[in-house]
Amino acid sequence: MKLTGWLIYNGGLSTPKFNDYAALMQRAARLRGAELTAVANDELLVSTDGVIRLKTDLKEPDFIHFADKDLLLANALEREGYRLYNRARTIELCDDKRLMHQAFAGYGVPQPLTILAPMAYPKIGYRNTSFCRQAADVLGFPLVVKEAFGSFGEQVYWVETMAELEELAERLAGVPHLYQQAVTESFGSDVRINIVGSQAVASMKRTAEGFRANVTAGGTTEPYDPTNEEIKAAIAAARAVGADMAGVDLFTGTEQPLVCEINSNPHVRSIIECTGVPVHHMMVEKMLQGRVLS
């Protein structure tokens, strides 16, 4: 029986990078005798009576590769009984860095010391930012400020003084964010380990001139042989958020592995070209096996 899947993406992000990702996944599916149809999230409407399909010729999916962050749609599809890769809760935990770090803490995943910024209402902000001094006393300088929602290493700030921290806190008032111990040993470099199922399938080191090592931000890559401790940390991070497949970023140069973050929808082109490992084929195989076994 030929299995059919949907690859759900954001209708506003039909960029060359995403189109390349979709084509990679679709070719991998075809090689396994499956069909993977790209479906934009705005081609599906969530209603109180279920998910409305704007395209009437869409085949019912046996599985869904949810490559977006539309949580309301993901939850609605799960309520209708569809198996999502990754699940809605996983996407939610990975999308909000505050929830992600709390999930890591609950699972014992090694990570830098992190303090969540107090909630502030948009256009109201903070009455004062005295909490910044306490955060700086705990974390020390330099420290890193991260907006809770961001991708490709953006919305991340390197802070070296109290004046910078207070100015940034005031500017981000109403924007969910956090404060984190800076891992100076890993300035400008990190390790990406791709997890499929419970296995580390590919790894590369990324290096850049600035403190963010993302390839999108101009970083270079080289194959990397992770230690057993790094592999364990990456797998633990994936399990903490319930990920079927993910990209886990670790800091380098530290005495023990420290997880920076986990991505539930990592683009895989760079790690495929860097390592030669067909990560996309492994991801498709995971989804097909899960559908057969469910």
Rank of each mutant, 00 (worst) to 15 (best):
Y224G: 06
E222T: 14
G219N: 09
A236R: 05
G218M: 12
G218A: 13
V201M: 09
T216V: 10
A208K: 08
A213L: 02
N228E: 15
T221P: 00
T227N: 14
M204P: 01
Y224A: 06
G218H: 07
A237E: 03
G218Q: 10
D225R: 15
M245T: 07
G218T: 13
E230C: 13
K205N: 08
P223Y: 02
G247T: 06
G219Y: 09
D225F: 12
T207C: 14
G210V: 06
D225L: 15
T221K: 04
I231E: 03
A233D: 09
T221Q: 04
A246N: 08
N214G: 07
T220A: 05
D244A: 14
D225Y: 13
A200P: 03
T221W: 01
G210D: 12
D225E: 15
V248K: 00
I231D: 04
A240C: 06
G218L: 13
R206N: 07
A246Y: 01
R206T: 01
G219P: 05
T220F: 00
T220Q: 00
G219F: 09
E229S: 15
M245F: 13
V201N: 02
A217L: 11
P223G: 04
A202G: 03
A236E: 03
P226I: 09
G210R: 12
P223I: 04
T220E: 01
R206Q: 06
G242F: 09
P226M: 10
D249Y: 10
A213N: 01
I231T: 06
A243Q: 04
E230Q: 12
P226W: 02
A217V: 06
D225V: 15
A236P: 04
T221L: 05
A233P: 01
A200Q: 02
N228L: 14
A200H: 03
A233N: 09
E229I: 14
A213G: 04
I235K: 00
A200Y: 04
D244N: 13
I235M: 02
E209K: 15
P226C: 14
E229K: 13
